[in-house]
Amino acid sequence: MIDSLIGLFHSKSGVVLLMTYAVLMLATLIITLVKTYKTPELIARIQSWWWIISLFTLGVMLNNTLALFFFGLVSYLALKEYFTLIPSRRADRRIIFYAYLAIIIQYLFAHMQWYGMFIIWIPVYLFLFLPFCQVLNGETQGFLANTSRIHWGLMMFVFGLSHLAYLLNLTNPSNNLAITGTDLVLYVVLLTEANDILQYLWGKRFGKHKIVPKVSPNKTVEGFIGAFMCTTLLALFFSFLTPFEWYQALLVGMLISSAGFIGDVVISMIKREVNVKDSGSLLPGHGGILDRVDSLTYTAPLFFHYVYYLYY
């Protein structure tokens, strides 16, 4: 454990992680020293970031098998939060149970690097299987709406997020650079989360024009554009974690920034429909786990297929 920690901080990813800790330290200093920023919400939020980044370091960066369980747990918690939020019938309990079991199988395929099954297990097999279970159940009222809702959750929080676990096990890109799957996971997660924070900061400072007022009243055009530029620059700066040429990194930065935004507002759509502000209470200052992984549900699969198409 100690050895692998020391090893980690000698690697490229380790250096990037140390940089994130430094930024977090700086943020902590700012909210402690500057009175106007010392609000209970910001304090709670930064404290949660310490937890998230530390758990990410221990859970994801040290060992690929551990990381598989880590992402599996994130999928489980996100899916549970989603099922807790949405309306469901008593008759749906059985397919919800199967949806949870599907997480284990999806991550097993990611671990085995069985690409074919990984990519069709939820979109094809479960898509066909869940309605069949509903037939055995026999409750016709609300069949379509409820079955769709449950499969949609599987697509977002299990299929989508599990791309991180598959990414983790990718080795040897075709241009033979020494890039590990862990480097790629860190790259996409870091840029996605940074983009979220940058949107918030740019929006707070310069935000005037609401971008999707009905869905997410706090999101502004200025926030989006500012974060778009910064995230693209960060994508270039951190491209040593990837096999990308500079122009590929530039493009992926734009992709992550826009897709992250879309993921965020798509999850907001759910929250607006069921009329809650936060999706849960797991992460003080942030809300629930869905509030944290919302952007990743879009960026993880898109980034994966981008890099997979180009280099693997």
Partner: peptide, 18 residues
């Protein structure tokens, strides 16, 4: 709130909800 979804009266299957 929620316990009636996890394990309602008359059901044996336990299904996770918050």
């Amino acid at each position: 709130h929620g316990t009636g979804k996890v394990l309602p009266k008359g059901e044996k299957l336990l299904v996770p909800f918050g």
